[in-house]
Design a protein around this nucleic acid. Structure first.
Lengths: 126, 126
DNA sequence: TCTTGACATAGAGTTCACTCTACATTGTAT
DNA sequence: ATACAATGTAGAGTGAACTCTATGTCAAGA
């Protein structure tokens, strides 16, 4: 299937402006039809899904662009791309660990608040 | 103990400019000494540590400011502050879950790459 | 006393990732 | 044929969170 930018925008949840911005940043390179209109494919759809994953996990546009450039060069860059993903997985693991530590501290803080609130209420009622 | 902005910057790892910016944004309100110099306390130190935690877990400055304002009002705002933290914990839990899903997908992708690389290498050597 | 370095303020500049505006062109329904 | 909605480009604007610059003050050491 092929999609106009409007259709593709709805499918991906990315605004039309954002899609054009991503193209300008060379993250994606949709075909053009006779009238110069962008023509997105199903392949573009899975690619955008992956871009969103990379973004959600904190990879900056610049780095995604680098990955996209390697991807465009095909098989010869397979191991370099894998290297990037392995690096990124490492960063992601560290991020998850950090957040889990933060969660523990936050739980403690909330527990502390619960006690404080009870204490102050006791003071008021006594 | 009390610290000059330079000392405090080293202790917290936040640049001097950032500390002044946080003050401008009303996240922190250090005392001033005779010569109008900022005078940070140990209390400020633990407060900054908590601010960093909130930031690291994705809370925007505006919201941290709101929390800081409640904090400055003392005990009467205890339950409102707890409410904020409970809300934030919810967001944090969702964030962790999302990242864990991303991690699984990334692991799969890396595995796919490993196979692809092996395949292409076999093609070359055969 | 003089100089140096840390500090002060006000405001400008930067980076990132969009997001929007202005204006021209094209595809579609009546 | 005409109107209008969707799309095109180029470039400006936005908001968040810093980060830096210019200029001035002040305390302490040589």
């Amino acid at each position: 299937m092929e999609y106009s930018i409007g259709e593709f925008s709805k499918l991906t949840g990315l605004g039309i402006h954002t899609l054009r911005y991503y193209e300008q940043e060379r993250l994606i390179a949709p075909e053009r039809n006779s009238g110069n209109r962008r023509c997105y494919s199903d392949n573009d759809l899975t690619w955008i899904a992956f871009i969103k994953r990379l973004k959600d996990t904190g990879m900056p546009i610049k780095e995604i662009r680098h990955y996209a450039e390697l991807r465009a060069d095909g098989d010869p860059t397979l191991s370099e791309r894998m290297e990037m993903l392995v690096q990124h997985r490492q960063a992601l693991n560290e991020q998850i660990t950090r957040l889990q530590e933060h969660k523990i501290k936050l739980d403690e803080k909330i527990e502390f608040y619960r006690n404080e609130i009870e204490r102050t209420q006791n003071n008021v009622s006594s």
